[in-house]
Amino acid sequence: MVTFSADFLHNQLGGITWSPGLNYIPPNSTTPSLVKNRSYYTLDAGVEPYLPKGPGEHGAKLTAFFNTNPSDIYEEAEEDSFDETPLFACATPWATEKDQRRYVYFGNYSQTRWSDKLDYDRMIECVPAHVKQYWAEELAAKGRPKWVTEALMKHFWPKPVYDGAITVPADDSDDKMMRDIKFYITELKAWEKEARLKVNLIKKEDILKAFDTADADDPPALRLWWEYLQCAGWDKNFYDMLVTLQARNKNYF
């Protein structure tokens, strides 16, 4: 089976990293998308122990947090979804070359069921130490995406909840509700400042400790999720097209 270099996939398919291992081609991209629903996976089997064992098989990937949907940012993305998304994986036995960083096309995958959050026992039994190390480094990295930083803030230092007046009695003015709203805005600003300071100081060791913390402990534990991947088919025409395009440039070999 022909494998593909990371540079080829990035240059030919384009897109931005939407969440770990998932790439998305925004509607305002200057080049036409070659993939259905404008998305594709590039996953590393070295840190994804539950990927499909081979092309056409089912599996799962791990994640710590979920990004928002593209349609929440791009109005033109309302019709996009992550169904039948091409999946490419490196560091698999299917890459016969010495360069294990080359990617194998496994097929098109859909998430047909809700993701499951691992509990304390599953984190101990099912997530190898080197995978925890990988995620700890990714989450503590200074260059992590903004949405990951915000997810960490909300997880470890939850945003204050508004508990002020919502409705105004008929015999009262709206002074109390306005005072409550202003107080809550001040409270949110203080939370934002403190949480952002704390999250900027978070280290890999803090994440690893949170992985091993009991579910009910405080500060809160951090758990990974299983995102289930069901193979919807292996597109030979798509594969042949990529093989042909890559063969035109010797720099990809």
Results as ranks from 00 to 15, higher is better:
P49K: 11
F82Y: 00
S39Q: 02
G107F: 03
M123I: 14
D119E: 13
V148Y: 02
Y40L: 03
T92Y: 03
G46H: 09
D99Y: 04
Q133R: 12
S71D: 07
Y103H: 15
E78L: 13
Y50K: 05
S115E: 05
D99L: 07
A95P: 05
L118S: 11
Y105H: 10
H155F: 04
I124H: 10
E78G: 14
Y50V: 04
F82L: 02
T92G: 00
W114I: 02
D99E: 13
Y41K: 05
C126E: 12
E76A: 15
A45G: 00
T149I: 08
G107Y: 01
H58Q: 07
T85A: 04
A77K: 06
P49S: 10
Y40K: 03
E48D: 02
Y109I: 06
L62W: 13
R122E: 15
E78I: 10
R101C: 08
T92N: 01
T63E: 02
H58M: 03
R122P: 00
F66Y: 04
L62N: 14
D99R: 13
L152S: 06
L152P: 09
V131I: 13
G107I: 01
Y40P: 06
R113L: 09
V127K: 09
D44Q: 10
L87R: 12
F66S: 11
K53M: 06
E79C: 01
A95I: 03
Y74K: 08
A141Q: 00
M153R: 15
T42C: 15
A141R: 12
Y50D: 05
L139R: 00
L62V: 14
S115R: 13
Y120D: 15
E125G: 00
F88C: 12
W135G: 00
A136V: 04
Y40A: 01
R38L: 05
T42N: 07
R122N: 10
G143W: 01
A91N: 15
A91D: 14
N37H: 01
P55Y: 03
D72G: 12
W94V: 02
L51N: 00
A60F: 10
G143L: 01
E125Q: 14
E57R: 09
A136P: 07
R113D: 08
T85G: 04
P145H: 09
A141H: 11
Y74H: 14
K146N: 15
D116G: 07
K146G: 09
A45H: 06
